[in-house]
Design a protein around this nucleic acid. Structure first.
Lengths: 242, 242
DNA sequence: TCACATTTGTCCGTATGTATC
DNA sequence: AGATACATACGGACAAATGTG
């Protein structure tokens, strides 16, 4: 064997049984045999079908659950249901990583501004009618909520995802979904879930208007202002805990 | 209770024991009580200390392992060791998500080009001497490897991370680490681990030179060319499987 | 409201595989 | 090669949660 051929063919770690079980289920999800919403057999049944112990099945389910592939409910009629929550899980992990690296809110906002600006630029370079329509619907619904004194947190997060969707590149959609998941985790931490919706909806409406008017400079400015404002609210909430 | 106060205080799911164990260990990592490289007690000891069953400890360890907080070795003297592999795990999850969304290599490269261009822009806006020095060392080492006919895959991945480090914003470091992890997964899938190093090192050297010469346009052009070239190699490898 | 069935959550005992010394 | 220490895996049992009749 020459020095350039010292490839390791055998994986370093032989796969553990629960990993094979998890991979098996994952493969069924990838090839469409299992669809979102489908219910997996009970742990006992899975154990029989795969001819392994129940403990092994459980550890496989832990993997799938933490990866966002399934969600698990206890009790009768419960069990593992195929789920589409990978971005949420990535967001959770990213939140942990940011905490571990002692990343500041300023740094995070800086990065978020630049990445979402990227999305905005693509949107101007390649405008998408359907995407714009979806954004309009989102803002309209959110405004309706505000009028009736309801919160619009979910719609406001969705706004950013819709922006990314309009770029036509799914990678950006994923990235923005992850950013929003991180943002939601921050909100939970500091406990800001009151009355911040109205201001956000207003900012989104203005931004959308600038996009429709094809006013690139204004849109950029509004996006930055909006995200910086979001940062300030978070920092204030940190200083004045519940 | 007014309509603005309908917050749910109780979490939707009461925490399971293994989650509490995992969170406990995670907290010790966050507050520094556990450092990277430290070895956790054996499963049996953990079970005694936390006063839970071994299976519960095992499921907690599964969580920590999949999250990249610990790595686990079998056999005598083995066990769980504190690890810093969150970005790798995020990369794995992201790879799954991209596969699930049927993201093409073209889309992925497009996004990668734009994100790494962001990094490059920050580098020009805010040049960092130490960072540049680290990049120079990286390229020099890689060139040395090539001369002696060795592979430089690890150094070549590190090059991109060092670029991000030079921006001074840790968020970009994380993002690029994740991108590199996804890239490595792709390489593994198609089995390209032969002889692609030399070309990459050359491209890195040229890019670094352009950065030192403060030639922004050239650097941008070289980065794009380099990443597109990487994409082509991957596509060719897909077409001509091993 | 009250059982009842189903399913996950947890614990224990034991056996086997695997890596280190 | 043998002893040791550890994760891995199995089976059985009961507790706790949750939906159903």
């Amino acid at each position: 064997m020459t020095s350039s051929e010292q490839n390791l063919f055998a994986p370093v770690k032989s796969k553990r049984t629960f990993e094979e079980v998890a991979d098996n289920v994952k493969e069924m999800i990838f090839n469409g045999a299992l669809q979102v919403g489908d219910r997996l057999p009970s742990e006992a049944q899975l154990a029989r079908q795969f001819e392994v112990g129940r403990q092994t099945v459980r550890e496989a389910l832990r993997q799938l659950e933490l990866s966002g592939f399934v969600s698990i409910q206890r009790g009768g009629g419960g069990g593992a249901v195929i789920n589409d929550a990978i971005s949420l899980r990535i967001g959770d992990l990213l939140s942990d990583a940011l905490r571990l690296k002692r990343v500041t809110l300023a740094e995070l906002t800086e990065a978020r501004v630049e990445i979402e600006s990227l999305v905005l630029n693509r949107l101007f370079a390649n405008p998408d009618k359907k995407g714009l329509a979806a954004l309009k619907r989102n803002v309209a619904q959110a405004q309706e909520r505000i009028k009736t004194d309801q919160k619009a947190t979910d719609l406001n997060a969705q706004f950013h995802t819709l922006l990314a969707k309009a770029t036509g590149n799914e990678v950006f959609v994923l990235v923005v979904e992850v950013i929003m998941a991180v943002h939601m985790n921050l909100l939970e931490e500091v406990g800001v879930s009151f009355l911040t919706s109205a201001k956000t909806v207003k900012a989104h409406a203005q931004l959308l208007q600038a996009i429709e008017d094809k006013d690139r400079a204004l849109a950029s400015k509004l996006l930055i202002e909006h995200l910086v404002e979001v940062k300030s609210r978070l920092i204030n909430a940190e200083k004045n805990p519940r």
